[in-house]
Amino acid sequence: MIKVLYLLNHAGKAGTERYVQTLIEKLHNNKIKAYFAYNEDGLLVERLKELGIETYRIEMRNPFDIKAVFNLVKLCKKLDIDLIHTQFLRENYIAMLSRIINPKVRVMYTNHFIMRNNLPIRIANRIITPLESNIIAVCNRGRDMMISNGINPKKIKVIFNGVDVKYWSEPVESTVREEFQIDDDVFVMLCASRFAHDKGHKFLINALYELKKMTNRKFKCILSNDGPLLEECKKQVEDMGLSDVVIFAGFRKDIKNLIYGCDLYINSSEHEALSFLIIEVLACGVPLIATDMGGNRDIINKETNCGILVQYNDHKGLAEAIIKVMEDGELRKTLSKNALKTVREKFNLDKVAEETYNLYEESLNKN
């Protein structure tokens, strides 16, 4: 059984943490023995402890933290680790540098962002990447960006994010309308992204302002989560006179309950690779509108016909897309049917876990 140490700087509650947790849930005590090391504490540590995973803290101040390198080597020797699976540049560089001291341990990296590196990092990529066994890109645009950042394309394999289709496709009796006192004739939208700059909440709120002017149909938009821009967004909603149609639901653990309680999900992100939330929403059979960025085109396209893509910051365009879905019941049925089919075929967690495990084995067999 392969011993895998999952290494992550911040163990919070975003998509990357969900990626790590789902892989561990699927592979631990089945094909691998999983361990977890982190720098900044968060919800993921709590969740993994509940799963019985051994967790360790390693301070990682920067990508070239030599003290962290030695502490990682020490931990890997103590646990007899075969492979380190990293998620971001900081811990990935630390893990690769640890191989200079402890070459027995292989390093594999999953890239969750589509971001242009500066010149020093691009140069460092060319120097350090040979220490990497394999690299996963979660979308095709991510792969293209890594190549432009100086990564050897032969090391990169695209493995889309995946979800547990059985769990998400089993309906629940949602309590959303009862909880927020929403009448049956009201069209309900949901966005559950964290309130951060790259998630586009201000763009979405501006689109809701346009929507309110364009339709007489009653609607509500539930914004669920927390984050640094929450208070700014609350003020924006109040200043634009949208308090009657926007509901701030806070951070929720019952995301499945929220999804099944809405008629349409909206992803308004400016930057993202391949959103777990989008895939979960589709697995629930809920119609989706998303911005045409990152890996969203890998999910929503003419072949899948499971949602509508809009341009980021086109407020009127998003409002028009919402009206299109809101007023066309047959379209909603088509999108719903194709949504579940798409996830089963392309974004199934079983498929993701199997392909990732195969890369673990391949990494261990490389010189």
Rank of each mutant, 00 (worst) to 15 (best):
M1R: 09
Y6N: 08
L8I: 12
L23R: 02
E25M: 11
K31M: 07
Y35V: 05
Y35E: 03
E40Q: 09
G42L: 07
R61K: 15
N62L: 00
F64V: 14
D65Q: 04
L72G: 05
K74D: 14
I81V: 15
L83W: 08
Q87M: 13
I94H: 04
S98K: 06
R99C: 07
P103K: 04
M108Y: 07
F113N: 15
I114A: 06
I114W: 09
L119W: 08
L119R: 14
I127P: 00
C139M: 07
N140P: 00
R143S: 07
M146W: 11
S148H: 11
S148N: 10
N149K: 08
K157F: 02
N161A: 10
N161K: 08
S169V: 01
P171W: 09
V172M: 09
R177T: 01
E179I: 10
M189N: 00
M189Q: 03
M189A: 04
R194H: 11
R194Y: 13
F195W: 10
A196L: 08
A196G: 10
G200W: 02
L204G: 10
A207N: 06
T215C: 12
F219N: 04
C221F: 06
S224G: 03
D226P: 01
L229M: 15
L229V: 03
E232S: 14
G241P: 09
D244I: 01
V245C: 14
I247C: 10
R252H: 04
G261C: 04
C262W: 00
Y265M: 06
S275C: 04
E280Q: 13
M293I: 15
E303Y: 12
E303A: 10
G307M: 02
G307I: 01
L309K: 09
A321D: 10
M326P: 12
G329P: 02
G329V: 12
R332K: 14
K337Y: 12
N338D: 07
K351R: 13
K351T: 12
E354Q: 13
Y357Q: 02
N358S: 14
Y360E: 02
S363H: 11
N365R: 14
